[in-house]
C-alpha cells in the first residue's frame, strides 16, 4: 500500500477530531450533550486506574469468550464433517442460537447461572455471539478441501488423523482466520451487551463504566470508556489481521498481494 493510502485514515481522523473540537467550542455545545475531544482525553487522564481496570476486565472476558469460541467452533466443525447425521441434527439449533438476539437470551442465561455469577453469564453470552462465525467458516473450509488432494491422501493410505491434520485443517485455515476476524469483534460486542443486560459482577467492565457515567450524566467519561472500547476492538481486529497476513502470505491469494 502506498504511503498516502496508508496515512489517509489517520489524516481523516485528525481532521474530524479538529472539526469536532472547533465546532463544539464555536457553538458552545454543553459537554453533557457532546464533549469536545479534549474533554474526553481529560476524562481519560483524570481516572486512568479505574478505566484501565475496566478495560482489563472487558479484555479478559472478550479473550476468554474468543478462545472458547475458536476451540469449540473448530471442534464442532470437525465433528460436523465427520458425522453428517450429527451435523443435520445440531446445525438448525446452532442457527437458532445465532439468530436469536443475545439481548433476549441474556436474562435467561443470568437466571440459569445465578445472579451471583454474572461473570460466567457474560462469558457464556459473549461466547454465543462469537461462536457461530468460527463454526460456519471452519465447516465450510473443511468441506472445501481439494478433491484431488483427497485422492492423493487415499492413494498413500493416509489415516483419518493424517487427513485431518495434514490436509483438512490447513485447507480450512484461510476460512478459519476469516471467521476469527469476525468472531474477535463479535466477542467484544457480546461482552459489552452482556454487561449492559446482566450488569457487572465481581469486576466492572467498560460497558458498566458507560452505564454508570450515563446515570451521572458524565458524558465525557462515557466517551472516554467508549473510545477505549473502540481502541480495544481495533486492536483485536488489527492483531487478527496481522496473524492472517503472516500465516497466509506465502501461499494464499487473499494475502499474497501484501508480499
Amino acid at each position: 500500500m502506498s504511503a498516502p493510502r496508508r496515512l489517509a485514515p489517520f489524516i481523516l481522523g485528525a481532521v474530524v477530531l479538529a472539526a469536532w473540537e472547533g465546532l463544539v467550542r464555536l457553538l458552545a455545545i454543553p459537554a453533557f450533550v457532546l464533549p469536545p475531544p479534549s474533554a474526553v482525553v481529560a476524562a481519560l487522564l483524570a481516572d486512568p486506574e479505574t478505566l484501565g481496570l475496566s478495560l482489563w476486565f472487558t479484555l479478559t472476558v472478550t479473550l476468554q469468550a474468543f478462545a472458547l469460541a475458536v476451540t469449540g467452533g473448530v471442534a464442532l466443525a470437525i465433528l460436523f464433517t465427520r458425522s453428517p447425521l450429527l451435523a443435520s441434527a445440531l446445525y438448525p439449533y446452532a442457527v437458532i442460537l445465532q439468530v436469536t438476539p443475545v439481548m433476549a437470551i441474556a436474562p435467561i442465561v443470568l437466571v440459569w447461572v445465578g445472579y451471583e455469577r454474572v461473570d460466567l453469564a457474560q462469558l457464556i453470552l459473549a461466547w454465543i455471539v462469537a461462536f457461530f462465525p468460527i463454526l460456519g467458516n471452519t465447516t465450510l473450509g473443511l468441506r472445501s478441501t481439494d478433491a484431488g488432494l483427497r485422492d492423493l491422501f487415499r492413494l498413500y493410505g493416509a489415516s483419518k488423523w493424517q487427513v485431518l491434520w495434514r490436509l483438512e485443517l490447513p485447507s480450512a485455515l484461510p476460512y478459519l482466520l476469516a471467521g476469527m476476524k469476525i468472531s474477535g469483534g463479535l466477542a467484544l460486542i457480546g461482552t459489552v451487551v452482556a454487561e449492559f443486560v446482566a450488569g457487572s459482577g465481581t469486576g466492572q467492565g467498560l460497558a458498566w463504566r458507560i452505564v454508570d457515567a450515563s446515570n451521572r450524566l458524565n458524558t465525557p467519561r462515557m466517551f472516554a470508556a467508549l473510545s477505549l472500547l473502540s481502541l480495544l476492538g481495533i486492536a483485536i481486529f488489527a492483531l487478527l489481521s496481522l496473524v492472517q497476513r503472516l500465516v497466509l502470505r506465502r501461499w494464499h491469494d487473499s494475502e499474497a498481494g501484501h508480499l
Partner: peptide, 11 residues
C-alpha cells in the same frame, strides 16, 4: 499418480 492438475498443497 500424477493428476491432470499438479494437485500440490498450496500451504
Amino acid at each position: 499418480m500424477v493428476f491432470q492438475e499438479p494437485t500440490l498443497m498450496p500451504w
